[in-house]
Design a protein around this nucleic acid. Structure first.
Lengths: 408, 408
DNA sequence: GATAATTTGTGCGAACCGTGAACAAATAGT
DNA sequence: ACTATTTGTTCACGGTTCGCACAAATTATC
């Protein structure tokens, strides 16, 4: 059969660039500049993107036609010259973010630019969650929160889950805390919630890392490591501004680096995982408290330490030392700008940081020192923010394409 | 002062794309396809790049004009249809690769496509190397090897060094084995060797990782970890096809992850670094040999083990166990496709791998298993190959730009 | 050995994109 | 009111790929 179109294979490798790629890339530049820096004048956009006024005019008008942004009347800023109109996000374009935790499910709606429009959280008591129940709960939660937000056009959906997530498949491969195994969460949700754009699923710690990197404590860092823990310890790595995924998207399981080969048994089947030394169970046990009391007990432990109780202080020093040992390893491996501590390491930051720093002084290679160790500034909302950022990613990379695919 | 050119800031952000960017990107596609897949017909290039015949014709003619490639007469391949001319690398375009080891200095010339044209190695006896001497030695070695190769046009130079290298500055920040401290090797070499294009300096293990990823055991892997060791233990990480650098290019110091917090003192000042358990000193000591004997002693140890000597076997089992502990950590963190073992872990691969695998079975999170552990296939030439690949990187990204900057 | 089928190179117009200059508009300062 | 300054608008221009029509070169078939 002769090829009717004569040439243009188009099937195997879409790596090449054409004129349209230039337009897409520049639209992405403009919309990303707005998303990450907030509303800007057209003049500012020229400076941020390096495009000429003529070109920015075209990009903005195209984004306006797509309904993504609009221009506000120019405001005089006191300097001479014709004032430039302010380009702002449309009010009815947003992303849906969903968080599946052990003890709660949450959903939120974020506008372009990162502003939260609505948030709802549903507490759960049981730890084992039936998949069908979870899907149904997420569905009603999503519908409610979308109504709260004024039913905006949803550009994409991001889901954060406690467990290993195969990102390319949007599948939860293993989530022991939920009792889930190979759950195709993306597909299941696509049937439950409609008109919510492309659905992407990610690990909660990786999403928190993404959030802190974009809008949190790692905003100015190119290379960042996020570490969070309560019962389990998870993390995420941002390398050169982009999340580290690994082969299947499982990268960042830093709770299971071996720090003490002859130490305690870990739930994962290994021995001496970092998690067994810096997790909340080890901390509470060292402090003479009930290891099963969970996250709330940590707050009482901070109080005890504040009051100067010796066992509490010792427990924190020991835990801080182990924290420092692992952090040293991470710094030597990744050479990051910043390490962001979330979860109980954020609330207990003041009680732990000295022991951590002491350990770093001997264990980090001298030229690699200088990495900042800071607490998370987004706290518990990091997961939802990161899920939203993941959902925005496609729209930012190809604004017109995703908009036209939304309005089928 | 009014702006004479009216607009076009051009100074701060060169992120935007124009028509010329498209051409550059597509030229890069074509040349890279040739570099990594070997000579291809124009028709093949259409398939690899997704460009049309018209476009490929333009790209090839431009690369030909720049002197990078030429077309060979078409050869009939037995199938019907007009035969397509074969696009091949010019014979006189090459990269210079230099390797600065503790006990030797080497230089080599590689043609586009990766073929080695010439190689020379200069042994050294003393371990402390004066910088001036090293520069002079490298200079003569480079001149000699370039003459051997027929004085090709050098498109770029890559230097691999045993030590921490600040890649952006082309500076050796710390190289204890050479006794170097903050040596601006790139600048110094630029004065010594002329007409060798842009000079880039990198860490030897990172370059080996790059080499194995491009042309070695990690060729088909997107995510790869390279591990090499003799006295010191180094490594490099390829994430999503690209080398992990970290903030200053120091990333990948996996010899200094803490595996045994109360273990032996490490030369870096820390305690229980992986290097202290899997380095050659620990191995020889366990086998009852002289820890200071160096790399040659390892070969005799393999012999002892082959002959069934118990202490040798025990030493290898113990070392293999520690090797497995660290590799498990790396897999849990990075979720790689492949782990490539170089240095003495390549020569001793058969004696170590069983103990490593045994450890992985309990320590790696189940969904992360399946990472292949394989020996390096480039062996000792990995560093030079990686250095050449680093040198090629610029030319592949912007062929015409670098060629015109070469012919000043 | 001639013809058909197939594959590929070549040439050219069309479409798309950003540039940059000229001009107009809008503001502050004098 | 006038000038300086900054910015939006318009438009011709150069650069790039695409896709078609045609020619060229090879194999398969009769």
């Amino acid at each position: 059969m002769p090829n009717p179109t004569n040439q243009a294979p188009a099937d195997p490798a879409p790596r090449s660039m054409r004129s349209a790629s230039v337009r897409t890339a520049n639209l992405s530049q403009v919309l990303s500049a707005l998303h990450f820096h907030g509303p800007l004048t057209r003049s500012d956009l020229c400076a941020y993107t390096g495009l000429t006024r003529s070109s920015v005019a075209v990009q903005v008008s195209e984004l306006t036609d797509a309904g993504l942004v609009f221009e506000q009347a120019p405001q005089s800023d006191g300097r001479p010259g014709r004032p430039s109109p302010l380009v702002t996000f449309s009010t009815d374009i947003a992303a849906l973010a969903i968080e599946v935790e052990v003890d709660s499910i949450a959903a939120a709606v974020f506008r372009l630019g990162g502003e939260s429009l609505a948030e709802r959280r549903l507490a759960r008591t049981r730890s084992q969650v039936r998949v069908e129940d979870a899907i149904a709960d997420i569905g009603t939660l999503a519908r409610d929160v979308l109504a709260d937000a004024g039913s905006p056009t949803i550009i994409g959906t991001g889901v954060g889950v406690v467990g290993l997530v195969e990102e390319a498949e949007n599948t939860v491969t293993m989530a022991p805390n939920l009792g889930w195994d190979n759950v195709p969460l993306g597909q299941l949700l696509a049937n439950e919630i409609k008109d919510c754009g492309e659905i992407r699923v990610g690990n909660e710690a990786n999403l928190s890392a993404r959030a802190e990197s974009t809008r949190g404590a790692g905003r100015d860092a190119n290379d960042m490591i996020y570490l969070s823990g309560e019962v389990g310890v998870g993390g995420g790595v941002i390398s050169n501004g982009r999340p580290l995924t690994g082969r299947s998207g499982f990268a960042g399981e830093i709770g299971h680096l071996t720090v003490n080969p002859d130490g305690r048994n870990c739930g994962c089947g290994s021995i001496g995982c970092w998690e067994t030394e810096i997790g909340i169970r080890a901390l509470l046990e060292r402090a003479g408290l009930n290891p099963d009391d969970g996250a709330d007990a940590a707050d009482t432990l901070w109080d005890h330490a504040d009051r100067g109780e010796e066992q509490a202080r010792d427990a924190l020093a020991t835990t801080g030392r182990w924290l420092g040992i692992g952090v040293s390893t991470l710094i030597n491996i990744f050479n990051p700008d910043v390490i962001v501590l979330g979860g109980m390491y954020r609330t207990g930051y003041a009680h732990l940081i000295d022991a951590v720093r002491a350990e770093l002084e001997t264990r980090v290679l001298p030229p690699l020192r200088g990495a900042a160790i800071v607490p998370s500034i987004l706290g518990d909302s990091a997961i939802l923010i990161g899920a939203a950022e993941m959902a925005f990613e496609h729209a930012l990379a190809d604004p017109i394409g995703t908009m036209s695919s939304i309005r089928t």
